[in-house]
C-alpha cells in the first residue's frame, strides 16, 4: 500500500499530511498516557509495534502473481484503541521511507492515513461490533485484522484514484484499476494477517492474563489462566 515517493501531486501530499497530523498528535498523547498511568502495559505496546514491524516487512506472494505485504495494525488497534496506532504506523512507514526507499516522505501522510488510521479504526470498530454480536473471540479478532488489512489497501486505491483520475472513466475507472492491483492481491494476504493476529491474540490471552484483564477490550471474553 506504499504510494511511492513523489507519486502524489503536491496538493494531495500536503492534504494527506494535514489530515493525518491530528491523529498522530492525539495518538502520541494516548501512548504517553498509557506509559504513565499503566506502565505494566508498556511491553504489550511494544509487542503491538513489533507485530506491525514484522508483518509490514513480509512481502508475500498472492494469487494475482504479484507480491504485497500485510499491515499488522489490527492487533494494536484491538488492544489499545485505534488512535494509538497512528504514531506506530508513522514510525514503521518512516523507517521504510528513509532506509528502504519504500514509500516516501512526500507520500508519508497518505500512507499513514491508510495504514495507521483507516486500518486501525476499521479493526477497532469491527472487533467491537463482533463482540457486541457475541461472536467467538478468535473469529472477532480474525475479522477485525483481515478487514482492516483489506480496507487499508482499498484506501490506497482511492487515494491514487483521486490523485490520478482516468481521462475517460474518471475516479471510478481509475479506482478499479488500482483496486485491481492492490485490493485483489491483498485478499489472501488479509486472510493470512487475520490468522496470524489470532495466533498472537490467542497466545497473549493464554499467558498474559493480568495485563489483559484490566483492558476493557477483552472484557466481554473470559480470560483463562
Amino acid at each position: 500500500m506504499h504510494i511511492m515517493e513523489g507519486f502524489l501531486p503536491v496538493s494531495h501530499a500536503v492534504g494527506w499530511s494535514l489530515a493525518s497530523l491530528p491523529f498522530v498528535g492525539y495518538g502520541l498523547h494516548v501512548i504517553k498516557k498509557i506509559m504513565q498511568e499503566k506502565p505494566q502495559q508498556r511491553m504489550l505496546l511494544g509487542v503491538a509495534t513489533a507485530f506491525t514491524f514484522v508483518l509490514s516487512a513480509l512481502k508475500m506472494p498472492s494469487v494475482t502473481g504479484s507480491c504485497s505485504h500485510p499491515t499488522g495494525t489490527g492487533l494494536g488497534a484491538i488492544l489499545f484503541g485505534p488512535v494509538a496506532m497512528a504514531p506506530i504506523g508513522l514510525v514503521v512507514l518512516l523507517f521504510q521511507a528513509l532506509l528502504l526507499a519504500h514509500g516516501g516522505l512526500t507520500t508519508l501522510g497518505a500512507n499513514v492515513f491508510s495504514m495507521g488510521i483507516v486500518g486501525p479504526f476499521a479493526a477497532y470498530g469491527i472487533f467491537r461490533l463482533a463482540s457486541t454480536l457475541r461472536l467467538p473471540f478468535g473469529l472477532s479478532v480474525f475479522l477485525a485484522a483481515a478487514l482492516a488489512d483489506l480496507l487499508t489497501y482499498v484506501t490506497t486505491s482511492m487515494q491514487l484514484a483521486w490523485a490520478f483520475p482516468d481521462p475517460t472513466g474518471g475516479f471510478t475507472a481509475s479506482f478499479l484499476k488500482f483496486a485491481g492491483i492492490f485490493a485483489i492481491t491483498q485478499i489472501p494476504l488479509a486472510i493470512s494477517e487475520g490468522l496470524l493476529t489470532v495466533v498472537v491474540a490467542n497466545t497473549l490471552k493464554r499467558f498474559n492474563y493480568p495485563e489483559l484483564q484490566e483492558m476493557k477490550v477483552f472484557a466481554g471474553y473470559e480470560v483463562r489462566v
Binding site: 500500500m1 506504499h2 504510494i3 511511492m4 515517493e5 513523489g6 507519486f7 503536491v10 512481502k59 504479484s66 507480491c67 504485497s68 521511507a97 528513509l98 532506509l99 526507499a101 519504500h102 514509500g103 516516501g104 516522505l105 512526500t106 490506497t156 491514487l160 490520478f164 483520475p165 482516468d166 481521462p167 481509475s174 484499476k177 488500482f178 492491483i181 492492490f182 492481491t185 491483498q186
Partner: peptide
Amino acid sequence: GADDQAKEVVTQIQPDYAPWFQPVL
C-alpha cells in the same frame, strides 16, 4: 511488488506525470 505495478498504472493514466521528489536513500 504491487507498489511498483501501481506506479506503472499512474504513468499509464498520466504519461506526463513526473515524480517531484526522489527517495532520500
